[in-house]
């Protein structure tokens, strides 16, 4: 069974008596360990799709199944729980809390998961070591470079061991080189078995994922790059954590 499934999902906004179909009868399936990009120009419904995939919003019509549970009728409280345990977010503008240290930022999801202090510190440190920031625990986010901040955000997204990582233009505020490093991180995560969803307007970035979902005027069209998909399967099967170059 698919990890995340959208069944005939529509999202309709009413503004000034006018009906806007941000998503129009979209169906989509995502499996464990997939690396997928969602690409579309602004105003295409890309953000709306991301919100629904990320359980930040509920569809007007249709059903969303996550891990065998229908969450399209979930309460706000249940949605918060799903966001906490099952999904990790990475944003374009990093969205770290400026008043907290790097360590505290990474601990934040565990605070809401009700995990005790010492375990929190341990796991947050481990996650930061994974993104090679173990030496910057006490710093404030604004003392770090953009790439480092994004890595902190990734550590925060990983720390509750979610099945899905949802990244919204994660390289948008970074230069090309740092962007590659971040994309590499995502690829590794998906090889390790997490589902990684990249949301972007940039076809070059979308080109690194085996599977691309294009969205235009609220409708989706899929394309699978067989070559990349094959490599991805191979890498996952071999349990390799690295080894794929970034094209272009």
């Amino acid at each position: 069974m698919a990890l995340l499934e959208l069944r005939n999902v529509s999202k309709i906004y009413h503004t000034g008596g006018e009906e806007i179909r941000a998503l129009d009868d979209v169906s989509l399936e995502l499996n464990n360990g997939e690396f997928i990009s969602i690409i579309g120009p602004s105003g295409s419904g890309k953000s709306t799709l991301m919100h629904i995939l990320g359980c930040l919003d509920l569809p007007t019509k249709g059903e969303v199944w996550l891990d065998g549970i229908n969450i399209s009728k979930a309460s706000q409280r249940e949605l918060a729980r799903v966001r906490n345990r099952t999904i990790g977010f990475v944003f374009q503008s990093f969205n770290l809390l400026p008043k907290l240290s790097v360590l505290q930022n990474v601990e934040l999801p565990m605070v809401y998961a009700g995990i005790g202090g010492s375990q929190r510190r341990e796991r947050a440190t481990a996650a930061l070591n994974l993104v090679e920031l173990g030496h910057r625990l006490k710093n404030r986010p604004n003392q770090l470079s953009g790439g480092q901040q994004q890595r902190v955000a990734i550590a925060r997204a990983l720390v509750n061991d979610p099945k899905i990582i949802l990244a919204d233009e994660p390289t948008g505020n970074l230069d090309t080189h740092t962007g590659e490093v971040i994309l590499n991180l995502f690829r590794q995560l998906s090889i390790q078995g997490r589902t990684v969803i990249l949301v972007t307007h940039n076809p070059e970035i979308a080109a690194v994922t085996p599977r691309r979902v294009e969205i235009r005027n609220g409708k989706v069209a899929e394309r699978v790059d067989e070559r990349l998909a094959g490599l991805h399967r191979q890498a996952a099967a071999a349990g390799m954590a690295a080894g794929l170059g970034v094209p272009g």
Binding site: Q76, A80, R83, F89, N95, L97, L108, P109, Y112, N160
Partner: peptide, 16 residues
């Protein structure tokens, strides 16, 4: 507002 949004995105319920 943004801080509240971030807290909610990483799993804070309204009650928190």
């Amino acid at each position: 507002i943004r801080e509240i949004g971030i807290r909610k995105a990483v799993g804070a319920a309204g009650f928190d």
